[in-house]
Design a protein around this nucleic acid. Structure first.
Lengths: 342, 342
DNA sequence: CTGTTAGCGCTTTCAT
DNA sequence: ATGAAAGCGCTAACAG
């Protein structure tokens, strides 16, 4: 099954462990040992091999290593939207943590579609040692299917009781409730919630928080939107129609979109209407006005996710961490409720 | 060399092509053929194999596929900072394009360090079919080294004459010059440039643009900063010390940081001082005030990069595309120069 | 059209 | 401490 040398068009063949062995005058087993840092090799040979490898510019083929050892040293991550800074922050934190232990990272963008997400996971499963699924939107059955694999999978930003998968998430519910409390203290009794994807656990939790606020006398209407600036922008008019004194956006991006539309309409934030976000992405504090929001601890989430995965890789069963606290960040997009006009 | 079954802790063994072959009562070659969509197989067998595969939950091991075929269907991307939305936009565009052709993507974050960047590339080279390097900062010799490999490498946002590597980039120089022209028209004659990494080609080009503006009577001082909000924020005071009527930031992120600091200092933009960014990331238009900036065509860049890589993968030598035009976007962070105070 | 078989590059017993 | 050799799971000639 002769393959066409290396990359078509170039004649040079990829140098292998055999080339190094020949050059150094040792067996491939020895080369393998020194390359993988096996301590029980003669210092002299180590030198020989190192030199030969250097000279030839040898670099091991990781697919072959993986195939032979059963360890690919690579983990997969599937995210709903690579363009969302929130995910990038988590991603950065996991990539860094993983790289520190010489694990590489394969990423796929599901576009937020549950089917696509499951497909991406399936694809990944056959080529990685572990899988991280961020803000999963796939149905619970699918989750069970993933739990049945022998590859460890961890869920980030989704908690599903009864699913045998490690998960990490922030306490979205409480943070949203607190955000509502803050608004209620400011005199708001009628608010609009601009929802994210109904399939997102975080959205369900946040909406649950908003609904819970009813007990303190706050009435909320739900307007369907999405986790992007443009979706927030587009849903603003509908939200306004319900006559709220505050708009709670699903996330910071949506909130920024809301504020842009509000500005166009000549409504001042927070004088005429209050706005809140969620996630506390970096730009939230540079929005106009700076956004009141809730931090979900992105770096911590990423770190913890990697830790759980790491445990799974070792066959350990790490204890499920409790929900991470998400803190409310008060800035200037929220203020006293303006008495109903007219 | 018996391996420990599958993932340690689970007893099930990963099902292989042999299992499917046995289940379907055919040879592994046939299974391989139907899995890879080879058309010359009996429809009946196809059904048999499909059923068996489905039943067993078979999914091919891509390392083995890669090893046997010499094609890994995976490409690497190394970026200086995964946390920068600009890169995420490019990334998203390439990941999507690649996924459409069933290529997966391995990403590493170099943290902007040239050594680290080169290491990351080396690592990647032994495990991918092609490599994309975004906004490379490594020395030219290193670039030559990459050009010498048999794996196709394409450079995005860096143009280095004499390096035998395909590259795509936007015309940063002209766009920056235009930005200066715009400022000059507004009466600005003394500006400060908040620089990005001196190692970044884009920074050199942008600075070259600023310097070129001297011919139209605009004097510029260079203040070292970086491509982040906090760096822009931190460098603002020093920039102000030079007494400019406008600050040209390396990118939008830095510009946002500048405006935040300016606000703290009680300086109004653009009344007291004008500010420009670069890249036109989504939040630029939602900054306060909306940022005058230059678009570098992120999606186009990503698409083109993938195209060039695709060509390299096929052993073709795609024609070098010209520099992509980068257009100036006028918004409200720039205004008439305020006459020198005092 | 299908099966047999020889590897892909590497790791890891098992002898020595 | 080192080498020989048997695979890891799959693809691609090559026969039939």
């Amino acid at each position: 099954m002769k393959r066409s040398a290396a990359a078509p068009g170039s004649g040079a063949h990829r140098i292998t462990i055999h080339d190094v062995a020949r050059e150094a005058g040792v067996s491939i087993a020895t080369v393998s040992r020194v390359v993988s840092g096996n301590p029980q090799v003669n210092a002299e040979m180590v030198g020989l091999v190192r030199t030969a490898a250097e000279k030839l510019g040898y670099s091991p083929n990781s697919a072959a290593q993986g195939l032979a050892s059963g360890q690919y040293r690579s983990i997969g991550v599937v995210v709903p939207d690579l363009g969302n800074p929130y995910f990038n922050d988590i991603l950065k934190s996991t990539v860094t943590a993983a790289a520190a232990e010489r694990y590489r990272m394969v990423v796929s963008d599901s576009g937020g579609d549950p089917e696509e997400e499951f497909n991406a996971c399936q694809q990944q499963l056959s080529q990685v040692d572990g899988l991280l699924v961020l803000s999963s939107r796939m149905p619970v059955e699918r989750l069970h299917a993933l739990a049945g694999q022998q590859v460890p999978v961890v869920l980030v930003n989704r908690v599903e009781l009864g699913v045998a998968l490690p998960m990490v998430a922030a306490d979205n519910f409480s943070a949203m409730l607190e955000l509502c409390q803050h608004l209620r203290d400011l005199g708001h009794t009628k608010v609009a919630y601009l929802a994210g994807s109904p399939l997102a656990w975080q959205n369900r939790e946040r909406w649950r928080g908003v609904q819970q606020a009813r007990i303190m006398g706050m009435e909320a209407s739900l307007i369907q939107a999405d986790a992007t600036i443009s979706a927030g922008y587009a849903a603003t008019d509908e939200a306004l129609a319900a006559g709220p004194t505050a708009i709670l956006a699903y996330n910071d991006l949506a909130a920024i979109g809301v504020m842009a539309r509000l500005r166009e309409l000549g409504l001042r934030v927070p004088h005429d209407i209050s706005v809140t976000g969620f996630d506390d992405i970096e730009v939230a504090q540079h929005a106009t006005p700076p956004l009141t929001t809730a931090t979900s601890p992105k770096a911590e989430l990423g770190r913890l996710a990697w830790e759980l995965l790491r445990a799974g890789l070792n066959g350990e069963r790490a204890p499920l961490p409790p929900l991470l606290p998400a803190e409310v960040v008060l800035r200037s997009s929220t203020g006293r409720a303006r008495p109903p006009r007219g």
